[in-house]
Amino acid sequence: MTSSAFQSLILPYRQKLYCFAYRLLGNEEDAKDVVQDAFIRVWNNREKMPELQSLEAWCMRITRNLALDRLKSRKYRATDDLDRAGELPAAHQTPLQHAEKSDVMRRVHGAIARLPEKFRTVLQLRDMDGLSYQEIADTLEIGLAEVKINLHRARKQVREQLQNLQVYGIQ
């Protein structure tokens, strides 16, 4: 594959890959590094491209693996750093409403962060990145049925935690 073909076929995915990495890592610098490393890896394995069914899924898979490696190697926790969610106040919100919303967002984030990794990734790919079931299956190299099962369990666990939050005010 030539340089120009690579740039026209692969580089358009960069925004999607960056969003995916950012949500996994919760950090702009790390997300950028991971996307760069992913592109380098894709370039180095470009001879495999003709055999692939979905270039996008392949790029997503590489990005995911690199992000998970980074999370593991640095004992990284993109957990309670939800300042970003709190920094998105609507102009009409009072400081109290803003604080309450930040608190709720932090709790939702915590509920998702506590999911097992395979559930969390499926939930993120579907509900935040907007991938189809087939794209998720291709990205994670699992079957469609497993995608649906994992997603169902992930949503069920999050729902239970939200119900506890709503009824008892606890998680």
Binding site: C19, A85, L88, V104, M105, H109, D127, M128, L162, Q166
Partner: peptide, 22 residues
Amino acid sequence: QEAAPLFRYFHDCSDVPEMPEL
């Protein structure tokens, strides 16, 4: 009300910082 925080969270998460130059 039960699902409201979750979908607001998903909506907020759609605001990803601008892609830096690679």
